[in-house]
Design a protein around this nucleic acid. Structure first.
Lengths: 186, 186
DNA sequence: GTCTATATTAAGATAGAC
DNA sequence: GTCTATCTTAATATAGAC
């Protein structure tokens, strides 16, 4: 066929899946072209900055997802524990129950641009803050809330690494079950 | 200079540092050649299997290090808590206080050989078992000991990811301080 | 056992037709 | 806005001299 196309959303999904699976250095423009059905030259038309710019767009897209599915639900109304349960469910989906890696984990391995590195750092800080805010709102002291937020993210990241290395998502599932207790005063 | 050489041990140190920093796909034979002072052809003489074989040797070397600096001290004599403190110190050194990544984390991103993947999985299982064994010996029940072992490694892996993303080792240092309490009955 | 030199393939990237 | 075609560089890998 002469002309193919793909929506920005579908493109994002394919690119996200490649980058979170193989990391920045592990993904080639050829892979991106095959996965999206576009030729390499078309990728450069959409993203003149090439792989660097695509990875940055992927990271930005993930931040947008977190804003909608994590930060906003956490800052909403209703009992804090209920909000934490909803967010845990959303995160379970995002990580496919432990089968998909964290984008910040794999893309933080050197190779990408400085902008990507800075974006991941900002996103991680925002994530910690969002977790600390709800822990605080649930009644915990600021220092305890901050510690709980960091512990929660450490456990998510760590259990995702274990899941990838062991090929077993059991520890991730346990972490997600524990999450509401970690983020709210018991 | 016409002929250079490097000991197997020094070669291992350089290769380990490259692979744990840049991941399998992020390391080229050219980088390995420059870091070790050997030409690419000499790398193929030592490791006919190329990058796959070098990465596998690195992973095996790390397993050897764990055997000596983690598994054996944990299985030794003396109070369990004292052994846990020694191992925490050794791990702190291995990860340069949080500045160096976990080899299992970065090398488990697809790209390497099936042997590498299997080796990392075996190493991770051995690590969990070693942690569970000392937790058990300290007086914890088998199920609690297993859970503590997994939690300890999850926290190590997760705090190393956070340290890399944030460029801040504070969470890793806190994890290492907590480790003896996690691995022994309080 | 390391070297120089080179073969081969794939990478990132661009020009220009349609 | 996507394509075909091509450029340049860098990757893995090997041959053969010393």
């Amino acid at each position: 066929m002469a002309h193919r196309t793909i929506s920005d959303e579908a493109f994002f999904d394919k690119a996200l899946d490649l980058f979170r699976t193989y990391g920045f250095e592990g993904v080639s423009l050829q892979q991106l072209a095959e996965a999206t059905g576009l030729e390499k030259a078309s990728l450069y038309y959409r993203y003149p900055g090439g792989k660097d710019e695509i990875a940055l767009a992927v990271a930005q897209g993930v931040v947008d997802w977190f804003r909608i599915k994590v930060f906003e639900p956490l800052a909403g109304n209703g009992p804090t524990r209920k909000r934490a349960v909803i967010v845990a469910d959303n995160l379970r989906t995002f990580y496919s129950g432990g089968k998909k890696s964290c984008v910040a984990d794999v893309l933080s391995i050197p190779g990408g641009s400085e902008d990507l590195k800075a974006g991941l750092k900002n996103a991680m800080q925002a994530w910690i803050k969002a977790f600390a805010d709800i822990a605080r709102e649930s009644g915990l002291s600021p220092s305890v809330a901050k510690a709980r937020a960091e512990e929660a993210i450490i456990r998510i990241e760590g259990s995702l690494v274990l899941a990838r290395v062991l090929g077993d998502s059991a520890t991730f599932e346990r972490t997600m079950k524990l999450l509401p207790d970690l983020l709210t005063a018991e």
